[in-house]
Every structure is written in C-alpha cells, then in structure tokens.
C-alpha cells in the first residue's frame, strides 16, 4: 500500500514538473527588435492586447537612389504606395500557442506587395524562425531572425 502511494505521488510529481516547464515559456519572449536573415531590415515586435505585431524600424537601404525615404511602392493598393517603409506595420495578429510558437499571424512583404500567412518559433532567446506560407505551411519559406540589442 505504501509503495503504491509513493509510486502515485511520484507520477503526480513528474506530471506537475512537466506542466510547470510548459508554463515557464514566456509569451512575451518574442518582444524586441529582430534583424531578418538577409540583414536588410529590423523589425520591432510589440504587443497590443493579447496579440503580437511587428513594424519595420530600420532599413539597410533607407533611401531611394534619389535620396528620398523609401515607400511602399509595390503595395497592390495604389493609395498606400506613398506610405514610408520605415515604421510600416507589416506583421499582425499573432497569437501565442505555447511551446515558444506564435501562430495565426500575417506578414506583408514590401518587396513584392504580397501578404502571407505566418508563424514564428523562438528557437532560443536570440533566434526567431519566421515562416511565411501560402495556404499550408508546406508551401512556404522560413527566415531566421536574430535579436538585436543596443550596443
């Protein structure tokens, strides 16, 4: 009887340990400034309510050859083609799903004016995998972002 009780207590303890490890993942761990895989831009991920968003805060090539700040010239909506790229909110509606994953979001690529479904996975505190896809995740591409800190 005592052995069974201790075995049961052991099992409960292990289960609580596993659940506690899950709860330790921080939904806000994705917040901060990230540089994309090409090194051409930085995106600041922030929180509004329960969802996560991202905006372009730095561009490697900030101006056109004419010296003017770059705008969203490839936007399919002509009325938005004068919007500055710097400060453009191009990621939206991400929801934390646990296990360091943020899903159900959208990402806009100003290079081609296309909108994609998107999910993010925090591989480690300074590495974020951002996968944009069309329809199913199979038809997509993963970009590896690196966390940026003030030097």
């Amino acid at each position: 009887m005592t052995n069974r009780f201790l075995a049961f207590f052991l099992l409960i303890g292990l289960l609580v340990g596993a659940l506690s490890a899950q709860a330790a993942a921080n939904p806000d761990a994705v917040l901060g400034v990230w540089k994309n895989g090409e090194g051409t831009g930085m995106i600041q991920i922030f929180k509004k309510g329960d969802k996560y968003y991202g905006r372009l805060v730095w561009l490697k090539v900030a101006n056109t050859p004419e010296g003017k700040p770059r705008t969203d010239v490839n936007n399919p909506d002509e009325s938005k083609r004068n919007v500055l790229l710097k400060g453009l909110e191009n990621m939206r509606d991400f929801t934390y799903k646990g296990d360091n994953k943020w899903e159900d979001g959208k990402i806009y690529d100003p290079k081609n004016g296309n909108d994609y479904s998107c999910e993010m996975t925090l591989v480690d505190p300074n590495t974020l995998e951002v996968r944009g896809f069309i329809g199913v995740s199979l038809f997509g591409r993963t970009d590896v972002w690196k966390r940026q800190v003030k030097k």
Partner: peptide
C-alpha cells in the same frame, strides 16, 4: 524547480521606444 524558475525578465521582453536610434543596434549573439 520549474516553478522556482518562473521569473519574468522585464528588461529583456520590454519593447524599446519607437524613436530609438536603431543604427546603434547590433546582434545579441
């Protein structure tokens, strides 16, 4: 042990100000 490890690091997860000079930023690693 995991319960004891649940400490929120507000300095790492807080978003920086929008007017930050991002030219001064670099890779964390």
């Amino acid at each position: 042990a995991p319960a004891a490890a649940q400490v929120t690091d507000t300095t790492r997860t807080a978003t920086p100000a929008a007017e930050e000079n991002f030219d001064a930023f670099g890779d964390a690693n």
